[in-house]
Simulated scan of single mutants.
Amino acid sequence: MRDFLPPDARRLSELARRLLGSFELFGYELVTLPVFEYESVLERGLGALEPEEVLRFVEPETGEVVALRPDMTPQLARVVATRLAQAAPPIRLSYQGSVLRRRRERARRHRQIFQAGIELIGLDGPSGDLEALDVACSAARAVGLSDFVLDLGHARIAFALLEGVEPSRQRAAVEALHLKDRAELVRAAAAAGLSQRERDALGALSELHGGREVLPEAASVLAGTRAEAGLAELSRVVLEVDRRGLAPAVVVDLGETRNFAYYTGTTFQLHAHGPGVPIASGGRYDGLLGGFGRPLPAFGFAFGLDDLVWALGSDVLTEIPPRLLLTGEASALAPALRAAGLRCAVGPEQDPLAYAKLWRYTHWVSAAAGQAVVTSVPDQVEQRAPLDAASVARALAG
């Protein structure tokens, strides 16, 4: 848990606003969800929750177990299956908020993760995948990120080869694939009882990552295996992403191992310089809504706002709207300035410039000889104007 003070809170708020505004351009409507959720709802969407993964407590009035949400998607599924049960698909929803989950990366990582994302429900196949990918890449650009990589994978490639394998042996193979350890992967595949054809295919996945040029080789390696259909679907998506120019750079990772039990089709991550983790990730999860009684295909993703701030670096929200500190006779202008959309507050009469610097006001407005004196706080450059709100606004614009 942590606090955000100005200006960090403003940065996060503004980033979320821009992301949601970009989502809205594609027809996504905002929903607000409770930070607590019944454990039964979360487990219906995510499976059994490990005791150390979430914070739980008993709701006093009902006696039911509730938890601080580790993910918002099960909540969206609940809403779609109940409150929006009569809504015609496709259903396009966006959200923002925080989730609480255990992070296993570097110690500086926080359990509280601020997110903004979308869920596209009821549009299946490559058309739905491509819409969601377009929304994600457009949102990254909308917040000022021009240099990022779209990393594409598919849950029905590696997992298709491991389907039906005893869980402990499946986990061993997945771990070897995650580490890109081909020798260990081949050994794990043999221990799992896979055929020679499937062993070779699974081993090759550890090295099949790169640009679209890996697709023809993958088609040869996976021909005749259970992974062939997943590769064909991913190939269509990759080629169309490339044709549309959705991202500055696109890579394909056929050994993607993220959350096999959850994702059912195309998966993706957006990477940028800085954070060392994806700034956004998501994918197709066609099996989840059925658990809530309304089986519909779905694709969702979320941006991590902290990681997005880091990726943007010094470019993050450099445009600061005017904030005015008013003193003396200029204080009377506050209502008219606010009516004009300008942010302002009345400041102390003693050492107002120091106060303005401390609280990051852009301008100090005072009065002298019947005129407004508009002082730029960073460089203390003065402008004089008639003592009325319209004239002060013009001085700021000029």
Rank of each mutant, 00 (worst) to 15 (best):
A176C: 12
L162F: 01
A249N: 05
G210C: 13
Q196V: 14
L202G: 07
F148P: 12
G193I: 04
A172W: 05
V165F: 00
T225Y: 03
A204D: 07
A247I: 05
H154I: 06
V241D: 04
R156A: 13
L177F: 04
G245W: 15
G144M: 10
V251H: 02
E163N: 02
L231K: 03
N259T: 11
P216G: 10
L185K: 01
H178M: 08
V241R: 00
P248R: 14
V237D: 00
V238R: 02
G193R: 04
E213R: 02
G210T: 14
R182D: 05
I157W: 01
R226A: 15
V237A: 03
E184A: 14
P216F: 09
V186S: 07
L145Q: 11
A189G: 12
E175P: 01
F159L: 10
A188H: 13
G224M: 10
D200M: 06
V238Y: 07
V186Y: 09
R244C: 03
T257P: 09
Y262C: 04
R197E: 12
Y262L: 14
D242W: 15
A160R: 00
E228D: 15
A232I: 02
R236D: 09
L150T: 02
D242C: 10
R244M: 10
A227E: 09
R236W: 12
G153T: 06
A158P: 06
Q196M: 08
G210S: 11
V186T: 08
S195D: 11
E166T: 00
S168A: 07
A155P: 00
V174R: 11
V143M: 09
L152W: 08
T257E: 15
D181E: 09
R236A: 14
E213G: 09
F260Y: 07
A191N: 10
A249Y: 01
T225N: 08
A188W: 12
D253S: 12
L208N: 12
V165G: 01
R243A: 15
E207N: 10
A218Q: 05
R156C: 03
L222N: 09
D242N: 03
A229I: 07
G230I: 06
Y262V: 07
A232M: 05
E217R: 09
H154G: 06
A227K: 02
P167R: 00
E217H: 08
E240P: 03
R199V: 09
L215N: 05
A261G: 10
G224V: 11
I157C: 02
L177W: 03
A173I: 02
K180Y: 11
V250P: 06
D242M: 09
A155T: 06
A191F: 13
E233L: 02
D181F: 07
L234Y: 12
E207Q: 11
G193E: 05
G153R: 04
R236E: 14
A227D: 12
V252F: 05
R171I: 01
H178I: 04
L177R: 06
K180L: 08
D151S: 05
L179A: 14
